[in-house]
Computed example of a mutant assay.
Amino acid sequence: MLLEFALLFCAGVVGGMLNAVAGGGTFVTFPALVFIGVPPVAANATSTVAALPGYLAATWGFRQDLRAMNDAPLWSLTIWTMLGGAMGCVLLLVSSNDAFSVLVPFLLLAATILFYWSDTFRRQALRWSRAVTPFSLATLLPMAIYGGYFNGGLGIVMLAVFAMWGMTDLHQMNGLKSWLSFALSVVAAIVFSGGDKIVWLPCAVLALGTIIGGYAGAPVARLIPRQVLRLLIAVIGFGMAAIFFWRLMP
């Protein structure tokens, strides 16, 4: 038991550090829960809720940038994100562990590809920005539903959507990303706890590690060149996807 908690705590620290610097913490926290025996659906729910305090801390750090977003319907975006997130959470609740286990390696692979080539996706999103209505539900709802269902790579998806909306200030984009992720995590905590899908003790251990990693680990991670860090996270993501594909084999 102590060894499992140590693994979860370390995964939380690493996940918090990755989220604070570049994103990709789910690639570590979700597999750690599965490896200690938490069923895939519960592991995904627990990992999502465990990230909640880290999102709140990041939102506080970007509070001035959020206040400067006078042209953004912040509360409307928040409400619709929570509604879309709730829909994704319900989809996860009705998924069987067997069905979700089949989807997990594909979701991890897609999220890793999106993460590693995120700059390319964001540049493409900027080209599409003239064809997309800013703050539209057509792009917001699918993003929120995905976040409620899986959450892996959600930050990269959000930044791409914000670029499509025409946003260019990275601090405001990160602030909005943190706030909407926090709002979605609050809904996830309510829905998943109601569905009895959160394993609370591992969730608390992960959350503690995530907080420490976000605060203490970020300065260390900033010493690592961006491309090296991106490659490291991609290796973790592709490696975890390969392991989950292997687990599907009879």
Rank of each mutant, 00 (worst) to 15 (best):
F5L: 15
L8W: 09
C10V: 15
C10R: 02
V13W: 07
L18W: 02
G24N: 08
P31Q: 05
L33S: 04
F35R: 02
L52P: 00
P53Q: 04
A57T: 12
T59E: 04
G61Q: 14
Q64G: 12
A68V: 06
T78P: 01
W80S: 05
L83A: 14
M87Y: 01
V90Y: 10
S96H: 03
A99H: 02
F100S: 04
F100Y: 12
L103I: 06
P105Y: 01
L108N: 01
A110W: 02
T120E: 07
A125D: 05
L126C: 08
S129R: 07
A131C: 08
F135K: 03
L140Q: 08
L141W: 00
P142F: 04
G152E: 05
A160S: 15
F162V: 08
G166V: 11
D169M: 05
H171Q: 14
M173F: 10
M173G: 11
L176T: 12
F182P: 06
L184G: 12
A189G: 14
I190T: 12
L201S: 12
C203K: 05
V205I: 15
T210A: 15
I211K: 03
P219W: 08
R222D: 06
V228M: 13
L229K: 02
R230C: 06
L232S: 13
I233L: 10
I233E: 06
A234D: 07
V235W: 01
G237T: 04
F238G: 06
G239I: 10
I243P: 00
